[in-house]
Design a protein around this nucleic acid. Structure first.
Lengths: 233, 233
DNA sequence: ACCTGAACACCGTTCAAGT
DNA sequence: ACCTGAACACCGTTCAAGT
């Protein structure tokens, strides 16, 4: 720990991988995905671009590390909040909801998860969900397909939510106004070509994102329960 | 139709929105997302960058249009292939599988769908699935949550599949070698922290993407059937 | 070992100028 | 109306040079 070289007058403001990741997260939260730039990062950290490359291999690695920090923290909170007697189903809901809220707060995490399969953040999520699916005690085949279904569903919602946030942000609209605008677009579609979409345009306004998200998880869990107990031909 | 000004010697090689979109699709298919560049596009079309902007507002719009062309074509094929007596469940499977295969062939479509909620390509998918869900005759609330779940699940798989293709392509690996590399990574994880992921690393190699995808859809459909017939407290 | 900052090879987009 | 292509304002990344 001889790192603290005390540049400047403030104390330990030496550059480190951790400080860079923290600054990246702040930048991403405040300015969106387009806001993360080595130039902006250099300015925030009062250093040169090359200094950042000493600690971090590329922008992709930095994004991945920032995403992983948020995901790890989120999953740790979900795990810590669960009492010992929590059912696997409830634990799965809690994991999903934790990720949902985290992505709501950091939309860029949703986008990044869609880009980084098989990398650390995804492995953490797979592990958290997989353990609970295993605790359900379903057959092996169902363990795999059920776990995959839950994971892909969560990632799908995450991505869509993140993209919606991004779009709303770009158009400088709050959630309600954004949804109202989309609902208006849908309502104006050709009734012959888009009967379904037109008919549900109204429901878009008052729906509850979190409740719908949980409903989807419950559907998959219900499907697993039905498939696990009863084997169709 | 006085458009055919016959520049060059070949005939109707006049620039048009359609020709630009076709060229963009070719470029995306052959060189991935990074391959779509206004400079590359200009060269392919033997024109200047400014000429493209006359027909297309921005790169984002071009990507959206390219994605929409693929999605529209895919859904039309799924619809045309279904005989009149197809059950809604089978129709939903066919729609999903059609999209799955299309994204397998054009990975950038998966990535683009994750970015373009509420835009045309997504509306097409929503409509196709929604109509079939409605044909199932489930209660209104289930129609919404079931349709959303199916849509988000499909988009989640699409995104992950696209990202995996992209990663494999970047590392210049074929599918089997890529999966083997991931499996090896997973098998090397800390057994205490990642028991589940380690234990399923082996299954990664021989699993069938399409079959797993369908299994997930069937789980959601099974969940809908269970929730629709039987109302829990 | 760690940092600086100019330089390089790109981008998407614009726009005066042409036909 | 449609096209040209140089120019602008950016990027991520590298690297000789410093401490």
């Amino acid at each position: 720990m001889t790192k603290n070289t005390r540049r400047g007058q403030g104390g330990d403001d030496a550059l480190s991988r951790e400080r860079i990741i923290d600054a990246a997260i702040s930048l991403l939260d405040s300015s969106g995905e387009g806001g993360l730039t080595f130039r902006a990062l250099s300015q925030t950290l009062a250093t040169g671009a090359g200094a950042i490359y000493w600690h971090v291999a590329s922008k992709g690695e930095l994004l991945d590390a920032a995403c992983d920090a948020v995901v790890a923290h989120t999953l740790a909170r979900s795990a810590a909040a669960a009492p010992g007697n929590t059912s696997p189903q409830a634990a799965i809901r809690a994991i999903g909801l934790g990720l949902f809220d985290a992505i709501d707060a950091h939309p860029w995490v949703g986008a990044q998860l869609a880009r980084a399969p098989s990398r650390m953040p995804m492995v953490r999520i797979l592990e958290a969900i997989g353990c609970q699916v295993r605790a359900l005690g379903v057959p092996r085949a169902l363990e795999w397909s059920g776990g995959s279904a839950l994971l892909n569903y969560i990632l799908g919602v995450a991505g869509q939510n993140a993209a919606n946030r991004q779009l709303a942000h770009e158009q400088a609209l709050v959630r309600d106004d954004f949804l109202a605008a989309v609902a208006a677009q849908w309502a104006a579609l050709d009734p012959d070509a888009y009967p379904f979409t037109r008919s549900i345009a109204g429901q878009l306004r008052d729906h509850d994102d979190r409740a719908d998200f949980l409903a989807g998880i419950d559907l998959i869990l219900a499907g697993m329960a039905a498939s696990g107990t009863r084997t169709p031909g």
